[in-house]
Design a protein around this nucleic acid. Sequence first.
DNA 1: TTACCGCTGG
DNA 2: ACGTAGAGTG
DNA 3: CACTCTACGTCCAGCGGTAA
Length: 282
Amino acid sequence: MLASLADAPLDDPHLVYEPKYDGIRAIVEIGPGGAVRLWSRLGNEKTNQFPEIVTALQKWGRRRKELLVLDGEIVALDDKGEPSGFQNLQGRIHVLDPTSGKGRAAEKGVRPLFAVALIAFDILRDGRIDYRTRPLTERRAALERIFARTGSPLLRISRQVRGDGRALHDEALARGWEGLIAKHADSLYKSGKRTPDWKKLKIVQEQEFVVGGWTDPRHARSYFGALLLGVYDNDDLVYVGHTGTGFTEKELARVMALVAPLEIKACPFRNRPKTNERPHWV
DNA sequence: TTACCGCTGG
DNA sequence: ACGTAGAGTG
DNA sequence: CACTCTACGTCCAGCGGTAA
């Protein structure tokens, strides 16, 4: 079940509000005796990539007798133990076995080994009970009963408020969260579907950048792939990232017309970015 | 070793 | 993740 | 007719695999 991007009131009594955790979506199976498996949104097994979480789940689920299936988000934790951004998980998405010491990341020693945690926000099955056919409020009650006090800092449940998300929204602004998810309190769980029962309320962060170049487009994309962006550190232009999404066809054309006549030979950034496609500088 | 592709998360 | 076109819905 | 929803194609970062 996936959320739709939409506006929603922050004080609707039929809605519940949760932080939008910025990590990797995961379906969690805890079998009898603690047989644990993690699955990604595309149905790929992630069990081997998060051994800390698996160990914690095994320990917690050791005396369970029946299958439990949860839905949640795997997040990286900052040094205060608070959920931090998706970026800190990027290096582990593809790692087949983080303990093996094999592979590029292990060789380079660059994997930061951020602490991670599982934040469960839904329950799909507990033994013979198929919770997907039960309303969200009932699922939430079951989740809190079963998973609220795991005794492990790695195993948590999402924060959730009912009816009035204004305080949570203020907190999201103050802490720079990605946004909130607003869910219909009586909605059912629809596996694999994107539905308006869950609404994604995005928070727009602002920052002014200087365009230092662009990259060639890939495939059937027109004009350019991404803009190369920097911010000034005194007199130095420091490359800070690419952005390629968010452009309509018209906007791609307009920006290209502005930027193409300004092309120069030398990279204007203090730190030359690595790009997927050929860069052009302005 | 390096460069590129393909795949996966968002 | 986003944006678009075309299908679906009212 | 206008609006909403879905399917699809594309974006970045990063890793693994393979070719050079």
